[in-house]
Design a protein around this nucleic acid. Structure first.
Lengths: 340, 340
DNA sequence: TGTTAGCACTCGTTTTAAGTGAGTGCTAAA
DNA sequence: TTTAGCACTCACTTAAAACGAGTGCTAACA
């Protein structure tokens, strides 16, 4: 379909455009080391590449710009894996050398590093909660009529919720209730919690305790709150530095999209395992028309999977990004290995 | 110093400029209902106001723009307290009607509302932690060699930290240690925790337990982490909608400033009780030259005080902002009343 | 004496026109 | 098949002209 020469030209065009964000003309290409033929020849080849839809003109007498099809081809076939610089490797390794024991910390840090090293915006999605199970429930009385319910999962995630304690309930009652709940609920997946609490447990408490209803209903409302999969976002303002986002309107609509946490989470979840790129229109959102989204998956010990993503203009340094995300997701997976 | 007529003109200029962000000319002023005299007269008066530094021209033949001194005067003397609309009052009340038991939730919500209703950026500073005392310490073992330390304060704040458990330590040892720690540390202010752990407690454990050192050192590092006063920020991207921030460079430097959490916290803390405005240069940061920062204080039951702030261009709807922040801080204070 | 109509003037903004240059497509010769 | 050459295109820059919102000043008026 494409001759070697055309491949070379396409590669040069995209490499150059990624660097400069300026349309690439035939003369510019002719000047490159690797190119031995004249600008006229290049013009002919470019006309061909354009006919086939790999590159476009911004106007009738401009240089060429990669089309989405061009980027797609580039990513699929022309990408020369880039070795990260010593500096970059060290930066990442140092970050992960620090002792981090909590999932949130690791993820937060990863998002930070990723956005810092790329100047793009990083988005990290935690693993599905489906599998997470309740490890322990604890209640700490705060005052006469309030207490805090603390819920710890087997993944070390902690959630807490304050709730009211009815006056007629004593501290010992509360303890008793917690004991019952712990006995019955340990190991139950969080998603089943809701159901269990409303049926089985409710029934059980009725038999074992007086005036449990009110306290239990409070506690239940505290525990049952949906646990949305959280998104960790880093370098949101990096978007502002990209020349393609000079237009504030675009920035605003992109921000609006990112802030739709649910939809973003769905999008990230929908990627398959490994590294994947969505270029421009391949993204489901209008505001991401001229964006690319690179996603990579990481793993937790117990087969659970999360996603790290990088959002930038379609004109992205794909090869460096691929290497970075590869290394980073590996570090994350390593860190989590054996935790669960 | 200023005649009534001048006051009126100054007021009209500022009111109009706040609305339109455009320099206000004499004809525009003359068209207002309240103004009965001609544009020529207004021009004379404006020349006077300019001599006194209350207004400025953007160039020699432009309309007038309020100077910082003008805003300051406006805020101090011309502000007619604005009644909030039914709609606004209801919005706020509804938000606070929802049962919220945690400090974080209330603050988060407040920041959200504030930025949403104003289209400015809201920043909320929690109370000083000086007074917060440790309520209870809990440890939940996760696996053979890891556990989570959970620290609950008397204000219902929960912090948690995972740590390693050395192999030679058994579950019962851990429990024992926690018991000792709880006995000794309940009621201790968080700020003293560090010191206590390193002296007294260390000593005590040495006498009561074998090979406590390693576990304890882990636990200590988990507990002692600094507890920085957190900033809750809402509507950070609202800044982009203000015409005075068309210039991306300004936006970026302002973001950079906001992200300096420590300095921002100091700034917010430095305000006195009640509502206060810092206009333009009155702010310590260069990036806030053309910003105003309105701060208001809220109270927690136990004499602790926090600050809510609103950051926008100097051209702010001061009277509405004042009313809003007044109402909001009151709602917050009410919500917290009796919690502690 | 304070107020106002009138007018010349200022200066940022918009419009128009001309000029520039990077880049193209096509043709014809090597 | 490749390339030199050339006419052509069109965004971008620059300069000049036209516009208009707004001013300060002056002189007349109540």
């Amino acid at each position: 379909m494409l001759t070697d020469r055309q491949l070379l030209i396409l590669q040069v065009i995209i490499d150059d455009f990624i660097l400069t964000a300026q349309p690439v003309g035939s003369r510019t290409i002719a000047k490159k080391e690797a190119v031995t033929f004249s600008s006229a020849t290049i013009r002919n080849e470019m006309a061909d590449l354009e006919d086939q839809g790999f590159i476009e003109k911004t106007h009738s007498s401009s240089g060429r710009v990669p089309s989405e099809k061009g980027y797609r081809f580039y990513v699929d076939h022309l990408l020369s894996p880039l070795r990260l610089s010593r500096q970059e490797i060290v930066t990442i390794r140092d970050a992960f050398n620090e002792k981090m024991m909590e999932f949130e910390r690791v993820v937060q840090k990863s998002a930070g590093i990723l956005s810092e090293m790329t100047n793009y915006t990083s988005i990290i999605l935690g693993p599905e909660v489906f599998e997470t199970k309740l490890k322990q429930l604890q209640i700490v009385p705060l005052s006469e009529h309030s207490a805090i319910a603390i819920l710890v999962t087997d993944t070390g995630h902690v959630e807490h919720r304050a709730f009211n304690v009815p006056v007629e309930m004593k501290g010992t009652d509360l303890e008793k209730m917690v004991n019952i709940l712990n006995q019955r609920l340990q190991g139950v997946p969080l998603v089943k919690l809701h159901e269990k609490l409303y049926t089985e447990i409710n029934e059980m408490l009725r038999h074992h305790m007086d005036h449990h209803e009110e306290a239990f209903s409070y506690l239940r409302s505290a525990l049952v709150e949906d646990h949305p999969t959280k998104l960790y976002i880093g370098g949101k303002t990096n978007i502002l530095m990209q020349p393609e986002f000079r237009d504030l309107e675009k920035v605003r609509s992109l921000y609006a999209t990112i802030e739709q946490e649910n939809e973003m989470a769905d999008l990230l979840r929908s990627g398959q395992e490994g590294i994947q790129v969505r270029i421009g229109q391949e993204n489901p959102f209008d505001s991401m028309q001229n964006c690319s989204l690179i996603t990579a998956t990481y793993h937790l010990g117990n087969d659970q999977m999360g996603t790290i993503a990088l959002l930038g203009p379609t004109r992205m340094e794909y090869n460096r990004m691929f290497s970075l995300m590869h290394v980073l997701s590996k570090h994350m997976t390593n860190t989590f290995r054996g935790w669960y």
